[in-house]
Simulated scan of single mutants.
Amino acid sequence: MSSQSADPGDVYVKAGAVVFALGALATLVTFVPLFLHLTPLPTAMYWLSMLMPAGFLAALTGLFLNARAQRRRLEPQQPARA
Protein backbone atom coordinates (compact mmCIF):
# COMPACT_ATOMS: atom_id res chain seq x y z
CA MET A 1 0.00 0.00 0.00
CA SER A 2 1.10 3.54 -0.57
CA SER A 3 1.52 6.09 2.19
CA GLN A 4 -1.10 8.34 0.58
CA SER A 5 -4.72 8.09 1.63
CA ALA A 6 -6.91 6.44 -0.95
CA ASP A 7 -9.61 8.50 -2.59
CA PRO A 8 -13.18 7.23 -2.21
CA GLY A 9 -13.56 6.41 -5.90
CA ASP A 10 -10.40 4.32 -6.29
CA VAL A 11 -12.25 1.08 -5.63
CA TYR A 12 -14.87 1.97 -8.24
CA VAL A 13 -12.20 2.72 -10.83
CA LYS A 14 -10.34 -0.55 -10.21
CA ALA A 15 -13.51 -2.66 -10.14
CA GLY A 16 -14.84 -0.87 -13.21
CA ALA A 17 -11.65 -1.65 -15.10
CA VAL A 18 -11.94 -5.35 -14.25
CA VAL A 19 -15.63 -5.50 -15.18
CA PHE A 20 -14.95 -3.60 -18.41
CA ALA A 21 -12.18 -6.06 -19.33
CA LEU A 22 -14.47 -9.03 -18.66
CA GLY A 23 -17.18 -7.43 -20.80
CA ALA A 24 -14.73 -6.75 -23.62
CA LEU A 25 -13.57 -10.35 -23.51
CA ALA A 26 -17.18 -11.57 -23.55
CA THR A 27 -17.92 -9.30 -26.51
CA LEU A 28 -14.96 -10.65 -28.41
CA VAL A 29 -15.89 -14.27 -27.67
CA THR A 30 -19.50 -13.61 -28.62
CA PHE A 31 -18.88 -11.98 -31.99
CA VAL A 32 -16.02 -14.13 -33.28
CA PRO A 33 -18.36 -17.04 -34.17
CA LEU A 34 -20.55 -14.65 -36.16
CA PHE A 35 -17.62 -13.52 -38.31
CA LEU A 36 -16.31 -17.06 -38.80
CA HIS A 37 -19.77 -18.38 -39.74
CA LEU A 38 -19.88 -20.79 -36.80
CA THR A 39 -22.83 -21.65 -34.57
CA PRO A 40 -23.82 -18.55 -32.57
CA LEU A 41 -23.37 -18.72 -28.82
CA PRO A 42 -26.33 -18.78 -26.41
CA THR A 43 -28.13 -15.57 -25.55
CA ALA A 44 -26.52 -15.51 -22.09
CA MET A 45 -23.19 -14.70 -23.71
CA TYR A 46 -24.72 -11.64 -25.34
CA TRP A 47 -25.91 -10.50 -21.92
CA LEU A 48 -22.37 -10.90 -20.56
CA SER A 49 -21.30 -8.35 -23.17
CA MET A 50 -23.33 -5.81 -21.18
CA LEU A 51 -20.58 -5.91 -18.56
CA MET A 52 -18.51 -3.62 -20.75
CA PRO A 53 -20.74 -0.52 -20.43
CA ALA A 54 -21.43 -1.38 -16.78
CA GLY A 55 -17.69 -1.38 -16.07
CA PHE A 56 -17.28 1.88 -17.93
CA LEU A 57 -20.06 3.43 -15.85
CA ALA A 58 -18.50 2.18 -12.59
CA ALA A 59 -15.08 3.57 -13.52
CA LEU A 60 -16.61 6.89 -14.56
CA THR A 61 -18.47 7.07 -11.24
CA GLY A 62 -15.18 6.50 -9.43
CA LEU A 63 -13.52 9.29 -11.38
CA PHE A 64 -16.31 11.69 -10.46
CA LEU A 65 -16.05 10.68 -6.78
CA ASN A 66 -12.30 11.25 -6.85
CA ALA A 67 -12.73 14.66 -8.48
CA ARG A 68 -15.28 15.70 -5.88
CA ALA A 69 -13.04 14.53 -3.03
CA GLN A 70 -10.08 16.42 -4.49
CA ARG A 71 -12.15 19.57 -4.86
CA ARG A 72 -13.26 19.32 -1.21
CA ARG A 73 -9.64 18.94 -0.10
CA LEU A 74 -8.62 22.06 -2.04
CA GLU A 75 -11.50 24.33 -0.95
CA PRO A 76 -10.16 25.22 2.53
CA GLN A 77 -6.76 26.10 1.01
CA GLN A 78 -8.17 28.73 -1.34
CA PRO A 79 -8.52 32.28 0.02
CA ALA A 80 -12.02 33.63 0.47
CA ARG A 81 -13.15 35.96 -2.28
CA ALA A 82 -15.02 39.13 -1.44
Rank of each mutant, 00 (worst) to 15 (best):
T43M: 06
A67L: 11
L60V: 06
P53G: 03
R72G: 10
H37M: 12
Q78Y: 06
T30S: 15
K14M: 00
L63I: 02
F64V: 07
V32Y: 04
S5M: 14
A44N: 08
G55C: 12
L41G: 15
F31E: 01
A15R: 07
V11I: 05
A59L: 01
A44I: 11
M1I: 09
M52V: 05
M50N: 12
L28F: 11
A17F: 04
A59N: 00
A67Y: 09
D7M: 11
V13M: 05
R68N: 13
L36N: 08
D10T: 06
Q77R: 11
A69S: 10
L63Y: 02
V11M: 08
V19T: 07
A59R: 02
L22M: 03
S5A: 08
R68I: 14
G9W: 00
P42Q: 07
L48H: 02
M52F: 08
F31G: 00
A44Q: 12
P8S: 03
L48N: 00
L28C: 12
A80R: 04
L38K: 12
A58Q: 04
R71A: 13
A80T: 06
W47I: 04
L22E: 09
V29H: 10
P40K: 09
R72D: 11
F35S: 05
F56A: 08
P79H: 03
N66S: 03
A17P: 01
P8L: 01
L60N: 07
G9I: 01
Y12S: 08
G62F: 00
Y46R: 00
L41T: 14
M45Q: 06
A82K: 01
L34V: 15
Q4M: 14
V13G: 03
T27A: 07
S2D: 15
H37V: 14
F20D: 03
L51A: 08
F56L: 05
M45S: 00
M52K: 08
P76E: 13
Q70R: 15
P8D: 01
L57S: 15
M52L: 02
A24P: 01
F31W: 03
T39P: 05
L74W: 14
S5F: 08
S49Q: 06
R71K: 07
T27C: 11
S49N: 10
L74N: 14
T27S: 12
L51T: 05
A54K: 11
R71T: 10
T39D: 09
A21G: 03
H37S: 15
L57R: 09
A15W: 05
G9A: 03
T39H: 12
Q78W: 13
E75P: 05
L63R: 04
V29E: 12
A26K: 02
W47K: 03
A67N: 15
F56R: 01
S3Q: 13
F20N: 06
P33F: 04
L74G: 13
A26T: 00
M45H: 02
T27M: 07
A82P: 04
G62E: 00
A21V: 06
Q77Y: 15
E75Q: 13
F64M: 11
G55F: 03
V18F: 09
R68L: 12
A67M: 09
V18E: 01
L63W: 02
V29T: 10
P40S: 12
S3M: 13
G23S: 07
V11F: 02
E75N: 05
P33Q: 11
K14S: 08
A21Q: 09
L28H: 10
L34I: 09
A59Q: 02
A59G: 00
A59D: 04
E75Y: 07
M1P: 11
M1N: 11
T61P: 12
Q70E: 11
P33D: 11
